[in-house]
Write a protein that binds this DNA or RNA. Sequence first.
DNA 1: GATAATAGGAGTGATATACTCTTATTGAAT
DNA 2: ATTCAATAAGAGTATATCACTCCTATTATC
Lengths: 141, 141
Amino acid sequence: MAIIKRETDYAVRALRKLAGADDFVSVSVLAEGEDVPAIFLRKIMQRLNRAGMVQSRQGPFGGYRLNVAPEDITLLDVVETVQGPLVMNECFVEPEVCRRTEFCPVRVRLAELQVELNARLAEVTLGEVFSAEPAGEGAAR
Amino acid sequence: MAIIKRETDYAVRALRKLAGADDFVSVSVLAEGEDVPAIFLRKIMQRLNRAGMVQSRQGPFGGYRLNVAPEDITLLDVVETVQGPLVMNECFVEPEVCRRTEFCPVRVRLAELQVELNARLAEVTLGEVFSAEPAGEGAAR
DNA sequence: GATAATAGGAGTGATATACTCTTATTGAAT
DNA sequence: ATTCAATAAGAGTATATCACTCCTATTATC
Ligand code: SF4
Ligand code: SF4
């Protein structure tokens, strides 16, 4: 199973394009050449908007633009905003799923992993990732 | 989303019980008091069996027994056997899902996280986890 | 105020997860 | 040897999640 869902991956692609523009960009332009169904990307952008990560404007010449600097957006932010919180096991978000939570040694180990995974995801910023792209950008193949 | 699925969690519970027995234990006994649907656990045990982690015997007085010492079973083993391989993103297992794999900086970061997550999961052995259980065991509560 | 471009949000099909039913095996008692 | 009950094997089903689409509301420009 993949931990990162398609929607999150698509969100990163769109945010990358937004980072390279300073005006509002429409969803159809954002989806262009990114192998993302535009109509699906719209839904994803809505979530980023509700989370305040981007700003939207309706009507002609509308679209989305970044509301937060790429350096201040972490991979964890995108994951949690788009696909929801990431947990090692269900018992971390749904206490009633298991009555062992109090004295479960498995859970203790998983909690450690959970903290570490989140920390690693939070270490990666979009600013960093985008700056690492191959020099000859724009119409990359 | 939970990274560890119910089936994997159930597998660990069953393996814990097997670790405390030295004869074959039937699925119905394994499921007893573990809040696991016995008939579902059976399917899970089949996977552990095919992977060689446990040994099965049919007929009366049959069931399952460990085929590998708990110290030699890692959490990663159980996860991969029961719910399949764990990857950060689909492009790690399905190359045709994306044509950017060659020059994608996101993928590079995810690959690092992937290695680390797997390493951490592989560090945790069932032997270690089970030995950490509260002293008064057996009829816990 | 009409128009066309755009975002908003409800809705749908496909896939994966969680769980069950039926069939085949086998050890032991007769 | 034959029967029988206990047990595992594997096919099958309901529900939840994922991936994606359709229709409706908004709004800048003419
Ligand atoms: S057994 Fe432990 S790890 Fe599994 S769901 Fe219960 S508390 Fe969480
Ligand atoms: S964009 Fe990068 S991380 Fe995402 S699927 Fe493609 S190669 Fe993988």
